[in-house]
Amino acid sequence: MSDLRKKTFVITRFDPDKDEVPKTQTYQIPVRPDWKVLDALNFIKDEVDGTLSHRWSCRMAVCGSCGMTVNGEPKLTCKTALSDYGDTVAVGPLSNFPVIRDLVVELEGFMEKFKAVKPWILRAKEKAPEEGVYRQSPEQLEAFKQFSMCINCMLCYAACPVVGNEPDYLGPAAIALGHRYNLDSRDEGDAERNQVFREEGGVYSCSYANECSEVCPKNVDPAAAINQAKFLAVVDWAKSFVSSPPRRK
């Protein structure tokens, strides 16, 4: 127990039944050197204050549930070492999201934006099962693999200044995922998605702060996806005047 050291946590609290606006509460707890921020939150929840609400699941940076603002920066708390911070650590909910309670944010708006880009394979005509699977070469996979690594942690939405100013903006993760399917050799729905991308709140709302890519814990680089999607959406629009490739519409 000699390696325990005390740290102060300033945590944003909000109870929808009592509070008009979020407030902060301070906890001083003993922490181990190898703890992540999530370990400290779980300690507070289990040992100090059972009313604290936060979201978490896998504890290994895969599920994307535990995204929070740590000392002003969006972080996956299960991946963020406490040793990277000083004696005081401020933990709040993700910026740009409505807060349901304490550190838990509203996800419905995010899910609606995801659905808007149709993040699944669209085909003009589905193959019959007896015709076999859709084949894809390693090179074709490589074209979009990076953008398929997103774990929907929403850190990119919390870091993006456009998200907080333009409620209609699709946002980094949704566009990266739509772009991922546009690059997929098995997909034929790029015209539909590019239509969504070109609309108000689509890819052209991005003013390239690049913060989405800076905070992404999986190196998805959503800023690259968005700016590639801008280019391809224009090419798609221009091509629509001269040809009509095989598409679902």
């Binding site: 002003g72 910026s95 409505p98 309670r101 509203e106």
Partner: peptide
């Protein structure tokens, strides 16, 4: 559920 309004990133 009543929610607290969103805030911009702290450094913006």
């Amino acid at each position: 559920t009543r929610t607290a309004p969103p805030v911009m990133p702290a450094e913006f």
